[in-house]
Structures are given as C-alpha cells and as structure tokens.
Design a protein around this nucleic acid. Structure first.
Lengths: 260, 260
DNA sequence: CCATGGATGTGTACAACGTATCCGGCGAAA
DNA sequence: TTTCGCCGGATACGTTGTACACATCCATGG
C-alpha cells in the first residue's frame, strides 16, 4: 500500500485541494505525513515548514505568516512550500497540530476533575505561548480534526469513562470545558494584543488608553452596574485567578448536574 | 462641546486611525456617531454602511465584505466609505455593535439565573443569524467595547447585583457564561460552515465526507474512548440540546460556587 | 557506466485586497 | 453671489494567495 501513495504524492496534494465537493477517495493529510515519500533531495518537509511558520507566528503574530515570508525564512522560492501543503489552510492545520503536541498528558488514574482541570490550564498555557491559536483566520483550521487535538479530547473522555455516564453527556462535559477555555483564552489574548498594539505595559495603562471611549460610554449613564464594578473591583488584572475561578465554577457545574 | 466635534469631523477620522500610540485627546467612535455633522448632502452614513456590510456578511460570509464590494453595493467609489470609518477595523466594530443591538433585553426582576440564561440563548440566536460574529478577522473587533455589547454585560451584572457578591466574583460569573457562549457558538458555527463548504446537508453527511480522515485516525487505535463515543452517542447532531445542557451545567456551577 | 523519469524547487504572472493621496464639485453660509 | 468646507471620485501602490509552466537533480534500471 505504500506504493500507492508514492506513485503520485505531488498530484495527491493538488487533488486534495481541488477536491472540495468531489467524491473520489481522498487521502487524509495525516496519513500522507506518516508515509512520506523516500525524499531523496529533502530540503523542505512539512515539519520544517510548520516549525518555521510557528516561529514566525509566535514572534510577530499570525498575520506575519505569509507564504512568501515562509519561503524567505526557508531560503526557498515563494511557491516551493505548495508541494507539501495544499494551501494556506493546510499550513494552519499543521501549525495547530504542532502546538497541540505541547499538551502534557494528564497522569492516568487522576480522577475526572483533576484531569479536565489539567487539560484546561495546560491548554491555556499553550494559548498564552502561541496566541495566534485563537486568532486563526480561517474557520477550517479552527475546527480541524488533528491528531494531537483529538488526543486532548480523548484524554478527557477517557477520564470520564470511569463514571458510567451516557456518551452524550460525556461529550457535553468535555465540550463544556473546551468551549469555556476557548472563549476565555480568546478574550484574554485579545486583551493582551490590544495592550501590545497600544503600547500599554499593564491593564492599568490599557485602561488609561481607552479612557476616551470608556468615559464617554459611562457618561451616558446606561451602565451603572458596570460602573460600580470598575470602581470597586480589585482583581481586574489577575487573569490567572479569573481563569481558574471560572474554571472551578464550570467543573462544579459538571459535578452537580452529572451527579458526581 | 458639540462645536469642537463638528469643526473637524473628517480630520477626526484620520487622526483616530493614525493615533495608535499617540497621546492627543481622542474622541470615541461612538461619541462621533451621536453627534453627526449637519450632513447636507448625505448619501453615505455609518448606519447605511454598517447595514449593507451586515447584509453582505450574512449572505456570503465575512470574507465577502471588502471595502470594494461595499462600495459597489452602495453605488459609490471604492474609497468613499473611508470618510466615515477609519479603516476596516472600524467597520467591523460598527457591524458588531449593530447586530448586538438585536439582543432582547431580559425582563427586569427575573432572577440572576433566568437573566443569564436568556442572555446566553439570545446571544446564540444572534450568532446563528450572523455566523461571522465569531469569525472576526481582527482581534480588535473581537474585544471591542461597543455600546450594545456593553449593554449585555450590564444586564448580566445588574441581575447579579441583587445578591451581595464581591464585584470580582460578579464579573467572573458574567464572564464565565460569556466565554462559554463564545467558545461553544464558535465551534458550532465552524461545523456549520464546514458543512456548507463540503456541501453536506446534515451532520451525517458531513461525517461521511470526513470519513477518510476519521477512519485513518481511528485506525491508529489512539482514540478508544472517542471511538466508542462515536459509535454509541445519540444526540451528536442536536446542537441546541448540547448548548443548553452545557449552559445549565455552567449555571449550576455558578450557583454552587458562589453560594446561591 | 550511463540514460531516464518522476519528484523537487524556480520564475513569472494575475486578480483581488486595503488604503494613501490628490481632486473636482456641490450646498450652505456670508 | 461669492466663498469655504465637506463629500465622493479617480488613480495608484504595495502586498497577498496561488495557478502554471519550466529547469534541475536523484535514484534507479539497463
């Protein structure tokens, strides 16, 4: 079966991209990666491409990741990478899978709650290290079923399978935590980015920069509760505390509703 | 004070965009909208621009919203809209605020739980009507403090202020629900989009289309728990049930941890 | 040892995008 | 009626993703 793939690996990439609604048997991107062609003159590899792309994205943001920039960084012509990725979508998918590989496997046998909590905080760490992860410009990369991403779901499900929950509720539990983490980290990253863009060093500096908008909006008198929050809150800038407190709320909720 | 603004409304837009890390007193976008210039020959208005933009985004996706397309749709030259929005970021912010205006105000006096629940489901309805809302291409639009968006937070906080919670915990409660809704609807929309792109009519058709990837990944044997989920789950396609079940989990969690 | 063919990277090109900049012209105030 | 300031038009530039045809080099079969 290895022969089948070797025979037309470059054509494979093209057809995969062009397929769309077509119906001929496709070959998974991940399958291709596991059976690479003999690669005689290997200068470029999907791994190297992804590595460089992640590096650029980490250093200068996802918008700095252009096919041309990648080519320059790899010391190669602008179109060279297209032999290995069908398009930018494919590239983003590779990047996502690569950084999800940084997830630390939760220790087996730690109850469901500890496992889900570890997965959540570990995912947050990854997002803080690679903020572009929650700013993917295409929808496909955001939902993509990559091996390492699926592994995260698997760990969660495995931890829950010891309790005899109906499968649908198991998935709800995993998805709830996942959705919370995704949403929370996304807004956390957005704040950090806004700070960077405005040149604000911390939350206080950012609020100073946003003063015109804020004072105008507060001046309308439409937001009294919000206003008193701003005046009296003390942990406005403690993102970690906020993240973990809310996470514990979510976990409490699972415990309560799923009867654990 | 109105005079100050009138005097240089067009210059205002430019300087607002160029300001960046500058320090001269900025004027909020929203303030500008409330004090429009006399507008003698009004063909274009921020409202009309936002309306058309939302229409295009709803019908053909956010990537169809280009400044040129907008101009064509408005029967105007490509650069005309720049008199009213400082750039594409401003435009997106206007769009976001506009659709958040569709939020139905929760009835006053209906306990915190009912209020938060209404806000959540109502937000989901908006996102399903305007899927681009969770696919905003820029980070600024994702966090933007727009009046209508702030109103949603205000309603939540107001509902919680009857319980004597510390302000930081109040915000955690509101943010938890917000983050969950954001994350969940985002993945829901991504699935819908993927279905549209693949020409799949329902979840089952989509899974058929993803069969190559899926069978390969499952064939590796690395995902046993996930595999049994796929085989035994019954509500895989009931997005509404999943959303509301998880939402109730989250609300339970708030109740438990915040002691209500 | 050499010829050959498929995989690999190159070069050029195009359409579409956001937007900077300059301009002609209309409407209301003087 | 003249003048001034806002409006929308026109043109242009640099950058993006990627299609397509071509040159080149390696492993292999003779």
């Amino acid at each position: 079966m290895a022969d089948q793939k070797k025979k037309s690996s470059s054509a494979e990439v093209r057809s995969d991209a062009a397929a769309g609604a077509g119906n001929e048997p496709r070959v998974s991107l991940w399958e291709r990666l596991e059976n690479p062609p003999p690669a005689p003159r290997t200068v470029l590899t999907p791994d190297r491409i992804a590595e460089v792309a992640v590096g650029v994205a980490d250093a200068e943001g996802i918008e700095a990741v252009t096919m041309r920039r990648l080519a320059t960084e790899l010391g190669v012509a602008p179109m060279a990478a297209y032999r290995y990725v069908a398009g930018k979508d494919d590239l983003l998918e590779l990047m996502v899978d690569r950084v999800y590989g940084e997830l630390t496997a939760p220790e087996a046998g730690a109850g469901w709650r500890a496992t889900l909590r570890t997965l959540a905080t570990s995912t947050r760490d990854i997002v803080l290290r690679h903020p572009w992860l929650v700013q993917l410009p295409t929808a496909r990369a955001a939902i993509s079923l990559t091996p390492n991403r699926l592994a995260a779901a698997e760990w969660g499900m495995a931890a829950l399978s010891e309790l005899d929950l109906p499968p649908d509720e198991m998935m709800v539990a995993v998805d709830t935590v996942g959705a919370y983490v995704q949403g929370r980290t996304a807004s956390e990253v957005a704040t950090l980015r806004l700070m960077a863009v405005q040149g604000a060093a911390d939350g206080h500096a950012l609020r100073t920069h946003l003063a015109p908008e804020m004072t105008y909006l507060m001046g309308t008198g439409r937001y009294p509760a919000f206003r008193t929050y701003i005046g009296t809150a003390r942990r406005k800038d403690d993102a970690r505390w906020q993240f973990e407190t809310a996470l514990d709320c979510v976990l409490d909720g699972l415990a309560t509703r799923l009867g654990i």
